[in-house]
Design a protein around this nucleic acid. Structure first.
Ligand SMILES: [Mn+2]
Ligand SMILES: [Mn+2]
Ligand SMILES: [Zn+2]
Ligand SMILES: [Zn+2]
Lengths: 151, 151
DNA sequence: CTTAAAGTGATAATAATTATCAATATCGAA
DNA sequence: TTCGATATTGATAATTATTATCACTTTAAG
């Protein structure tokens, strides 16, 4: 039995082709950070009859079942990506100039976690780091502009 | 000359009482994470004639001048707080049950930053860590519920 | 004091997301 | 299999957060 069906059964929910297709589509785009409407468009390619409301219902559901990760990259919409378990969380570099997003595969917090839990009486289930800065090409453009102004 | 006026002058922008009041209001609420409409309500208390559009214009402006921090706590709206410079960045514990937000004053990345810059050819100007978990009271409620189910 | 240009308030317009509801599909039991 | 309780869906109306417009006002340099 597929992992999706398993999770659904546990909660008395039903397996529909809509839920399967959403899982498949996101799974086919590892490394991408897809908005709800982008997922809608991708699903429609193979299943044009699906409704947008179903997408908006399905994504939070899959997230709660930990089959997807929800992320918020400050561009005004929620995005989703394939689930990464706590042990191999990854993080995001966001270019403040062009908005490009790069992934960082590294444990960025490490042992500090335990200390935070002690200090704050807060049990930590996961974390997300967003790093803001400039990608290589945007950094170059910025230094060129400074030169021009100096002339 | 106030820091606000200084920044505005540099860019040929003007000092208005609206901009001053928004700064004041957010400054009076250190530790809070205020949404645009919450800020609107707070400003209206002393200055009822202000328009919502001005709030939405002013906040991103103050953020670009680094007089405010913009944050995104996954609840569907942008929030702002008093500016904290890079050297003393703080981070957020978000309770997945009740939504409460606590602050953590700690450098969570430290030396890893340089390594990230090397590995990714990305200049880092700042970062933000969101830690997800359960606050003390919600953690208790959860364990109580498990007991009940077990009965 | 004048005046050009920046800024504002009211409000219309968008964009993302949620709520409603009648019709349909799923799945365990008969 | 068939049946039926109910979970789910698609269409669409409604909300919510944010942005765009535009005529009028305010700022600040001269
Ligand atoms: Mn990612
Ligand atoms: Mn904070
Ligand atoms: Zn860039
Ligand atoms: Zn809580």
């Amino acid at each position: 039995m597929t992992e999706l069906k398993q999770h659904l059964n546990e909660k008395g929910l039903r397996l529909t082709w809509q839920r399967q297709v959403v899982m498949e589509v996101v799974g086919k785009h590892k490394g991408k950070h897809l908005s709800s409407s982008e997922i809608f468009e991708l699903v429609k390619e193979s299943h044009p009859s699906i409704g947008l409301a179903t997408i908006y219902r399905t994504l939070p559901l899959l997230e709660k079942m930990k089959l997807l990760n929800k992320i918020c990259l400050d561009d005004g919409c929620v995005r989703y990506e394939s689930y990464t378990p706590k042990e191999q969380e990854h993080h995001h570099l966001i270019c403040m100039a062009c908005g490009a997003v790069y992934e960082v595969e590294q444990d960025l917090l490490g042992i500090k976690e335990k200390q935070i839990i002690r200090d704050n009486h807060f049990s930590i289930k996961g974390y997300m780091v967003k790093l803001y800065g400039y990608c290589e090409s945007c950094a170059e453009k910025k230094s060129e502009m400074k030169k021009e102004v100096a002339l």
